[in-house]
Structure formats: C-alpha cells, structure tokens
Amino acid sequence: MLVGVDASPQARAALRFAARHAAGLRAPLQVLAVAEDPAAMEPAERALAGAARSLRGLGPLDARTVLRLGAVTRTLLEAAAGARVLVVGRGDRPGDRPGDQLGRTARELLTACPVPLALVPATSPPAAPGERRTLPADPDDGDVLVSLAGDDSDVPVLAAGRDWAVRRRSRLHVAHALRHGPHASVVPDAADGACLVVLANSGEDTDQLLTQVDRPVLVLPRRP
C-alpha cells in the first residue's frame, strides 16, 4: 500500500487511513513525500518526519518512508505501479482553486491512476442548519457502502467492498445507481453513517460525487 503525504490535514487523515488498512492486510506501507523542486525539499522532509512520528504511535507496522524529487502526480503514479492501493488526501492545497473540495492532485490522479485510489478528506464539514447526518464516532468506524452501476465494473467493486468490510469488521451496504440514477445522485444520502464508499470511476459523475461526500472514497479504475 502506498500513501502520499505532505503537511496538510488531509494528508494526515490519509496516513491514518492507510496505516490502519495496511496493518489489517498485514501488508507493507510505503509513505511517500514528493518535492516538486529543490526549494521544496525541506518542507517535504519535515512532512515525512512528521509522518514517521505518527506511525510510531499507531503500533507495529511494516512501513518505510521515501522522499522523491519531481512532479507530484507523475511521481505518485510511477510509485503506485504494482501497489495494492494508492491513498491520498483530498481537498484544496496552496495553488489550488480556493474551496476546491477535491484538489488538483486528486483530480489528476483520478484520470490516470491504474490501481484503486483511496481519496480521504481531512474532516467532515459541519452539518447545515436542519441537516441530519449520522457520523461515526470514530472516522474508522461505520459501514462500508458500495455503489453499483449495473455493468461489468460491479463485480470488482462488490469484491473490493466485501474485502474492506471483512477487514474492518463492518457491515456492507449496496446502493444501485442503475435503479436510482448516477452515483452522485444516489451515494450522498446512502453514505450517511458509512466509513468508506467504494465505486468504479465513472468520470464526471465521480468528480461530482467527491464534492458531495465527506467520507473516504475508494475509486476503482475501469478496465478496458
């Protein structure tokens, strides 16, 4: 499992998510920080050192930290080759559009990532007046929701959701986007109380969904 980190709150949430699931899978975890130019090496080193300290507080884990110089998205994609899952935080960072709930790097990864991509938000935003939401007391608790599209992607999506539910010791819920509309019109309500949403990448519909759901989302690439 591979997780990309920087100094952002969403990267810290992604690290926690990746560490828990690498431990559950008994899989090695690679923690990668990327500096886009030599001037960014020191901040990247600090982020990586902070990640290493956090990992020491999460119990026994086969983890290693890596620092690389290069374009962030390209470097993450190169490192993800052969990985079981790539985990990154989602949300705006310096240089992104203000208020962008997905973030430039996450958007770029969505279009090209060849392995399952887990996009983890920093925190859940406060509920609007009159809005009722069921949030897990712990962000790692709750059910796993899979969203099926009624096509060939359903088999791997359901298998991935079942696998994650078993390892989380969570219940598995299924939403049928085919019956009720696109993922973005079905999942936000169905995700109430979930700790993870699993679906196949469906392009613009997935982008829209990710701006509406404040849970980690595991996006499976569509196979040709």
Rank of each mutant, 00 (worst) to 15 (best):
P114A: 15
E36A: 15
T206R: 04
D192E: 14
G203C: 01
G59A: 06
R171V: 14
G99W: 00
H176K: 11
R169Q: 15
R215Y: 04
E78D: 15
R20A: 15
M1C: 00
P114H: 03
G24Y: 08
R93F: 08
A63P: 07
R53S: 14
T65E: 15
D141W: 08
V144M: 08
R167T: 08
V217Y: 02
T105E: 10
D207Q: 13
G193H: 04
P216F: 09
V197P: 03
G70V: 07
M1K: 01
P126T: 13
V219W: 00
V197R: 04
T206S: 09
V198K: 07
L178M: 13
A160K: 01
A160L: 04
A159V: 07
A33N: 05
P156T: 03
P114T: 13
H21Y: 15
T105M: 08
A47W: 00
V187L: 05
L110W: 04
L58A: 13
D92P: 03
L210T: 08
G103H: 06
D189K: 11
D100G: 01
D140K: 03
E78C: 03
A137N: 02
P28N: 02
G161V: 10
R16S: 13
D138N: 10
E131V: 11
L117E: 06
H173A: 09
A14R: 02
V197N: 02
A39K: 11
L69K: 12
A18I: 07
L76H: 02
A160I: 00
R162P: 01
R90E: 12
G57A: 09
L135V: 15
L86E: 10
D92G: 08
R168T: 11
D62G: 00
L178F: 05
L29N: 02
E42L: 13
A200D: 04
V198M: 07
V186S: 04
H21P: 00
A194V: 10
M41D: 06
L76G: 05
D192L: 04
R133M: 12
Q208A: 15
E45P: 01
V87R: 01
S54M: 14
L158C: 01
P9H: 05
G150E: 02
N201G: 14
R97Y: 02
V72D: 03
F17M: 09
V146P: 05
V166G: 10
P116A: 13
P139R: 04
